[in-house]
């Protein structure tokens, strides 16, 4: 564990909690892309199946359980409890254009042609594009609640910090994973436009044109 990965994980956890609390407290999921949340639930499910097969550490296990639990709770709130506030018209990104190519790529480019490894690779590729429906929805509505932008900032920051974690681990531990790094770079680049808007327009509401 290094400082970049620790802060990255805490930033990721903060994003997940911010979103869950925002929906729960405001009893509304307006402006939130349910499709992105479904993709994140799939990302965690396919990546954390090793919860059943191997124990790494208490921290690792707890965080995985929290991530999966919050992801499904968020999907439940959006599509069941507060479905009346779900803005389906603006959440119109065709996720099949993400899942199918990512699935194909995971089968073609992976480290090991085994079930768990392909699922892990699929989850890494899918995570890099899972935020697209959300960014697309914001660009369609042209605005985002302040709390939503904080959610996106923490979410984008987490993988950016992971890039530094991978540099750290390459330098000090002498190994790296090209699949995770390339996907992590793509994921972080997708947030760049948002990061710029977030930093330059902080404070009084947002008019986005991502």
């Amino acid at each position: 564990m290094n400082i970049f990965r620790l802060i990255g994980d805490l930033s990721h956890l903060a994003a997940i909690i911010i979103l869950l609390l925002k929906i729960w407290k405001s009893r509304s999921c307006a402006g939130i892309s349910g499709k992105s949340q479904i993709l994140f639930a799939i990302v965690f499910t396919t990546r954390y199946l090793d919860l059943l097969t191997s124990f790494i550490s208490l921290y690792n296990t707890c965080m995985k359980v929290i991530y999966i639990g919050c992801a499904y709770a968020t999907v439940y709130l959006i599509y069941m409890k507060f479905r009346a506030t779900y803005d389906g018209n603006h959440d119109s990104f065709r996720v099949e254009f993400l899942v199918v190519p990512v699935g194909g790529l995971a089968v073609l480019i992976n480290h090991d042609f085994s079930f768990l490894e392909i699922l892990w690779t699929f989850s890494i590729y899918l995570e890099s594009v899972a935020i697209l429906p959300q960014l697309f929805m914001i660009s369609k509505t042209g605005e985002a609640e302040t709390i939503t932008t904080h959610y996106l900032f923490c979410l984008g920051l987490y993988r950016a910090l992971y890039l530094f974690n991978w540099i750290w681990r390459f330098y000090f531990e002498g190994f790296f994973d090209m699949i995770a790094i390339v996907a992590g770079v793509v994921q972080t680049v997708l947030y760049c436009d948002f990061f710029y808007l977030y930093v330059t327009k902080d404070g009084k509401g947002y008019r986005f044109s991502i």
């Binding site: 990965r5 790494i56 965080m63 991530y67 892990w120 190994f175 994973d177 995770a180």
Partner: peptide, 10 residues
């Protein structure tokens, strides 16, 4: 392999 070490990450 080398990359399996990455499996301790979230």
């Amino acid at each position: 392999q080398l990359h399996n070490k990455l499996k301790d990450e979230l």
